[in-house]
Nucleic acid binder design. Structure first.
Lengths: 152, 152
DNA sequence: TTAAATAGTACTAATATAGTACTCTAAATT
DNA sequence: AATTTAGAGTACTATATTAGTACTATTTAA
């Protein structure tokens, strides 16, 4: 079904809330109430997002989390990677060594290309695009030449 | 990690074999031997692919499977959909009703756009691209305007 | 009629995901 | 300094999904 995990989905919801709310600092409890996502889940997600540097955490009383960058600077790819790890459609996209089939498999190199294409697609959409309505005039364009892909 | 299932990966390998091998009809056993994928798995996959019309099945002795279309006409999106079902990154991309969060969720519509973008990326790569080396001169281009996306 | 091959279905096992609980550390307020 | 608020870290459990297997039925060639 090629789908994102629920956690990633939740992450976009809670980051979307943070992007829209004007106050800088948000406690996990507040975000949980506002979004309807269970508190332990919200905490877990915010920790992951803090690890990847997408949000900044402030400890102690009156602490909380704030976005590290403007919503326009945070891409969907960033969010997916923060929660799910590297975007890699197939095992062999990650490491060369792992696949026992490699003798039979002539397809490996070409998956890399597709992978890069997907990543490019996800990188081209920002948190701002998600959180605020995408205007119909906005054009998403992905133009990926194999030259650039095979170099990457 | 946004990855395809192993089964989808296997499916590309065995379709790749069929695309390269010149003989029209291939029994499941033959494909299993050639690709190193276990026979029961190969059978399962070929059944799924036959259901979606990507391969044509011939029953009985001397039977087997053959590609329904030229490798150039079969897209990676077709293969993914045959094995994993509809390409839908989030639950709400499939049905409107399901999501209990819908009151809180302003993000729904925009996921659709991303979804379509991903699908477009996968549609732009063919089985032929996978099975034979993509030539560096080949350019994969995705150009998706939101106008067309919101209509879809 | 027999052997070869796919169709269909149901089941089991393995893995990954989601969710929860608990302890530790840091900062602010009094 | 003590207390309270809030995040950090870790480990665990339950659930759901995925992968893999087995078995029976059906079709066709020789």
């Amino acid at each position: 079904m090629l789908r994102l995990s629920k956690l990633t989905d939740y992450a976009t919801v809670l980051l979307g809330y943070m992007a829209r709310a004007k106050l800088e600092i948000h406690a996990a409890v507040e975000i949980a109430h506002a979004t309807g996502i269970a508190l332990p889940t919200v905490s877990k997600l915010l920790k992951l997002l803090a690890h990847s540097g997408l949000v900044h955490s402030i400890r102690g009383a009156k602490g909380g989390y704030c976005l590290s960058h403007a919503p326009e600077r945070i891409s969907v790819a960033d969010i997916v990677q923060a929660i799910e790890g590297p975007i890699a459609l197939t095992e062999c996209s990650i490491s060369d060594d792992y696949c026992e089939q490699s003798a039979h498999c002539d397809i490996r190199g070409n998956w890399r290309v597709i992978n890069k294409a997907m990543r490019t697609a996800l990188e081209s959409v920002s948190l701002a695009d998600l959180a605020f309505k995408i205007k119909p005039s906005t054009a998403l364009e992905f133009k990926v030449s194999v030259d650039s892909l095979t170099r990457g």
